[in-house]
Write a protein that binds this DNA or RNA. Sequence first.
DNA 1: TTGAAAGCGCTAACAC
DNA 2: GTGTTAGCGCTTTCAA
Lengths: 349, 349
Amino acid sequence: MRATIKDIAGVAGVSDTTVSLAFRENSRIGKKTREKVLKIASQLGYIPNTAAQKLRQGKTKIIAFVINDITNPFYSLMAKEAENIIEGFGYEMFSADSNWDPGREEQIIKKMIQMRVEGVVFCLSEKSIKGIDLLNKYFIPSISVDSYSEAYNGSYVANNFEECGKIVSQHLLDIGCRNPGIIGADETMSEFSAFKRIFAAFEKNFEKNNIEVKTQNKINAGLKIETGRKVFEKALKNNFDADGVICANDLCAMGVMEAAEKHGLQIGKDLAVVGIDNLEVSELPKISLTSVKQPYKEIARKAATALFALINQEDSKIQIELSPELVIRKSTSTFKKKDFSYDKKHYTT
Amino acid sequence: MRATIKDIAGVAGVSDTTVSLAFRENSRIGKKTREKVLKIASQLGYIPNTAAQKLRQGKTKIIAFVINDITNPFYSLMAKEAENIIEGFGYEMFSADSNWDPGREEQIIKKMIQMRVEGVVFCLSEKSIKGIDLLNKYFIPSISVDSYSEAYNGSYVANNFEECGKIVSQHLLDIGCRNPGIIGADETMSEFSAFKRIFAAFEKNFEKNNIEVKTQNKINAGLKIETGRKVFEKALKNNFDADGVICANDLCAMGVMEAAEKHGLQIGKDLAVVGIDNLEVSELPKISLTSVKQPYKEIARKAATALFALINQEDSKIQIELSPELVIRKSTSTFKKKDFSYDKKHYTT
DNA sequence: TTGAAAGCGCTAACAC
DNA sequence: GTGTTAGCGCTTTCAA
């Protein structure tokens, strides 16, 4: 039904080989023959069959992109950037969404191996390493983006989460906060290495300055406005008394700010709030949320490029961390220092 | 290098066919043979080669999802929903991002045909119909989602944009606006049928009530906070004087509200503002933007399901429009009616 | 400059 | 219940 190379060969009165070669530039085919073949091919509406090509050549020129949640704008941004790089190398990219499910992760990676992809860019749920084991077993070059679990020892291009926690805590210290709080993700997500590393670094930097994050000021809220609001409302009614907080993300921070104001606290003055993500809406004057901007585009670009270095065996392991940037806005910039005496005694940078 | 069916057959001392059949449930193979084959396959780390399967079977069980911009949260949401449905049918989904470029669209669709996909879900830029022509030429079932150009006559599951423009205008009428304004997308995007249809229906419903949208109150801003703010600031300095506006999307509306307040207008009272998208942040008390919520998830689900009806020839053309919902918030709910005398004379529903 | 022949890995007819 | 044979559409030797 659909035209094949044989059909063209039949009409043109040449061999299959000649037709195949006619599609490649600078092949040994004569000019006239090529023109004739190409013309007939176009008349017959010939489109090559990728499956046959791949089978014959053994190479697929496909890279897989496996990600936790493609509806997360940062992940879809990475997908788009990676795709551009990958196409620049003459490869195709197939993406798949694991929905944070380790079972689906493994299943997707198996499919990708069936498909004989030549490399994989991934950001996994960290709940299982079966997917990575599979890739290693079949010697498929792969690289992790954004974050990676503690046990992971392969290639990655990641956010420097220690730096992230550190710059936030340092900023809070600098503006005068002496009683920090941590408003984390919900229970499932708070095991994710990114949050663990950010909050650990945040706490560590305060400890270096002899300031402790009180247990009552460490809570798990979630990644949405609503969860941030509800959980923080409740916390304030209990004994939450921090003067500066880091939140799991910007949406959560917005919920937190709302609850705080409702409780009579002035944002930026009584309570400094920092988010993570630097969403477009965070810069609205009415929100004006200080936030951490992470270099997702650059991560994706570097990772895709690095993957080809692995594929071409120019390198055997690549581990890169990129630093975030703190965007300071009103939610932290009008803080009133309460305890200046403290600074002289303890404060160090 | 990688184990094939022949390798397994060799070790097990059976034929290729037997091995192939062993992987299929309820095939005629004996129980013991199957167990032996499966065991050896697992020992050799056998993973079937999709290219070979597809080539042999002629069927690929692949659906393509071609979309303008996967970083648009609504589009990625549709991709995810569609993928779930498609997997439920035992197919795989490959997605590709055309970045609103008609050239890339065509190129992507060509690739998908090379890949012998069995169906395509798409949302195209509307700047060219070459992609659709290709699909038709090769008799590949396809369905459009979200929007479609005027010239398009194929299957679709779309937003009912007329309804969208109508409910917004009716709401503005109901609260007492008598001098409407339209704040559209930038020049490139404003040719997109979705915006044209929404704004036309908006205007038409006002006209039915003998109210005209003045030329000076129709402006093109854009789809971002910043463009909304800048363009509306300028418009207010000129002669923009509407008392109720529809904006191209929520982000634009936020920029508009910011500029309006800076200019001394009270949102909801002097100027009613309606957005489109109903973003999560639009419900924040400080923003509280009335907005149109469009049924993207349902569109994607219906479209994917409909595509299989087309593939299985249970149906030859499917055209469905789904209605949006207006979420009313403070940006329109405290409006002070100025001209009650008008109502008695003209107002109709 | 061209063609003949082989085969990538798998599955489907058909025969036993 | 199992094996033989052929072939999906293409590319790649190798020979002419």
